[in-house]
Amino acid sequence: MARWGMVIDVKRCIACWSCTISCKEEHFLPPNVFWNRVLIGEAGKFPTSRKLIYPVLCNHCADAACVDACPTGATYKREDGIVAVDYDKCVGCRACLISCPYQQRTYYDEEKKNAEYFPGQGKTEYEKIGEKLYPFTCGTVMKCNFCTERIEEGLEKGLTPGTDDEASPACVIACPVGARIFGDLDDSESEISRLIMEKNGKQLHPEFGTEPAVYYID
């Protein structure tokens, strides 16, 4: 069984936010909910300071703090490494959200459900159809699912996630500079395993011991 992971090539990334916005369209996320973000900061001092750009998303940790914290089992680790949320089991205690050192979870409530992209002007057709196509449950916690649907449907069609667009996460194919590479961490021959080895891939905050499946190379 594969363990899905991602490498983000920070050197390539130009902070265009395509990952963030594509993800929103893929999952019909309501206003101000993000499963993918880009963090922009700085290190060092003028004139040798460096701009930092880090696209972040759920790390699908091997030892996920959220999975441990969840009292109901709604948040669980799949065999393929994806940390998933079963909205039908989620009680909305937000222990997972609080526990995540990467803050990649969002509590979905009435306020978010009712939010409009054009505030006060009603929901657009896009928002309305989204509620049908990709419904969320109020009072539960949501987050990036590595586009599980795409992976599963792709695998059913005999496609390879990370290689075939149809079977890969939306943010990966949306990246206009090829900064996101998706694949099987357990396969030492996969491109992402090779990149992590060759370019010394780093995880965010390894000190939390969560073993993220998202690596950064520079």
Binding site: P71, G73, V91, G92
Partner: peptide
């Protein structure tokens, strides 16, 4: 809780 009726879970 977001879903009080599921508290037993």
């Amino acid at each position: 809780l977001g879903n009080p009726f599921r508290a037993w879970r």
